[in-house]
């Protein structure tokens, strides 16, 4: 196989990174948990595209295999698990009931920071990521390293989602955004970590999601809601 030209590689990589960042912002914008999970799956595809492109450009087959694995996990398995959890929480199907107010578990009805402010914050966080990553980019100015701030921005947005969203499932997505961001940063900065570390991290994430899925169901049975602010009762 002929390596793709540098121009095409750069454009495709930038496209993937742009989609990756956009997906994170869309997660902040949407309230429907179903839509959030769908966006997360799309982000998984964009994330898988990054090592794929790097692998094709640098002719590293191992990286392409990793890309396939990441795509299967982040765009396939994890969204599937979350959709199942969502279906368990809303037995009659979330879509038909979205006009009922507040009782629906399928909507992020009252985030601690409203959507408009969230989007502005995301912009500010992206700027911060670009500012912070400047010295890192200066170390090795190539197309991959120039896209590095995107990974950091997604890390920050993931943390922001964790800190401001009420529904347990939205929290899970926040955590996974954080992890996607870390993975993307690793690929963009160092063309990926050793395979064994990547495997370990992926397994870890899978376990975390499984545990969180169980916890979410338990929370629902214990408190009747998955608003994690109700966990405060455990403190008192």
């Amino acid at each position: 196989m002929r390596p793709m030209s540098t121009g095409t590689y750069t454009q495709l990589l930038d496209l993937a990174c742009g989609a990756f960042l956009l997906a994170a912002v869309v997660v902040l914008w949407r309230r429907e948990l179903v839509a959030i999970v769908r966006t997360f799956a799309l982000q998984g595809i964009a994330l898988a595209a990054i090592p794929l492109l790097i692998g094709l450009h640098e002719q590293r087959w191992g990286l392409i295999a990793v890309a396939t694995g990441i795509g299967a996990l982040r765009a396939g398995l994890l969204p599937y698990l979350m959709r199942r959890a969502l279906a368990a929480l809303t037995p009659s199907g979330g879509e038909e009931h979205h006009y009922e107010e507040d009782v629906s578990e399928a909507r992020e009805t009252q985030p601690l920071v409203n959507v408009a402010a969230s989007l502005l914050t995301a912009a500010a966080l992206t700027l911060l990521a670009y500012a912070v990553a400047r010295p890192l980019v200066a170390l090795n100015p190539g197309p991959a390293a120039r896209a590095l701030p995107v990974g950091l921005a997604v890390v920050l947005i993931g943390l922001f989602v964790l800190a401001t969203r009420r529904r347990a499932l939205a929290q899970v997505v926040g955590f996974l955004l954080l992890d996607n961001g870390i993975t993307a940063t690793a690929f963009l900065a160092a063309s990926g970590v050793p395979l064994i570390v990547e495997l370990g991290v992926s397994f870890d994430v899978l376990l975390a999601v499984l545990v969180l899925q169980i916890l979410t169901t338990r929370m629902r049975t214990a408190f009747g809601t998955t608003d994690i602010d109700d966990l405060r009762e455990l403190h008192d």
Binding site: L128, R166, D236
Partner: peptide
Amino acid sequence: LAGGSVHLYLGYGFFGLVALLLVLAVGW
């Protein structure tokens, strides 16, 4: 400081990280 709200704890982490990054960004 430890009110029991998970959001509060996550917020500590978030603001701590952002503040640290801001210091780094301004410092450079």
